[in-house]
């Protein structure tokens, strides 16, 4: 993801967005970000742009997010190019945020919360995707 895109309004909330060696698209939110509907939509648009219409495993690192608004959760619940989503966190706060999303909103694709990056990658790979 070119830096200028991430520097655009709202783009600063995304710390990085790119593919790793396993063909997994990794999204990392900026530290202390408050995710609301506009920046959630921006992230989704960026993800879809990079996927180019191809179902792609997505790993979202939310370890440093401050909060996720209800409207933002509704955006994530919309169908996108992600074929499976692993939510990666580390703290009890991340677990609450992730599980609230999983419990209240019905995700359009298989979605799970992990505290371990390797486990998240294994799970995404096991889901079977074009890219992974």
């Amino acid at each position: 993801m070119p830096d200028k895109d991430l520097d655009s309004p709202g783009g600063r909330d995304i710390s990085s967005l790119d593919f790793d060696g396993d063909g997994i698209l990794r999204l990392k939110w900026a530290r202390g970000v408050v995710i609301d509907a506009p920046n959630a939509q921006l992230a989704m648009d960026r993800v879809n742009e990079l996927c180019g219409g191809q179902p792609t495993p997505l790993l979202i690192d939310m370890a440093t997010t401050d909060s996720v608004s209800r409207a933002a959760r509704a955006v994530f619940a919309k169908p996108c190019d992600a074929s499976a989503i692993a939510l990666l966190g580390s703290s009890a706060v991340d677990r609450v945020l992730a599980n609230f999303f999983l419990g209240v909103n019905s995700a359009p694709v298989p979605t799970r919360f992990f505290t371990n990056s390797d486990e998240a990658v294994r799970w995404l790979t096991s889901q079977g995707h074009d890219r992974a």
């Binding site: 703290s91 009890a92 706060v93 991340d94 677990r95």
Partner: peptide
């Protein structure tokens, strides 16, 4: 982001 923060969240 400890347990108290998780409850708060």
């Amino acid at each position: 982001r400890d347990g108290i923060d998780a409850v708060t969240t």
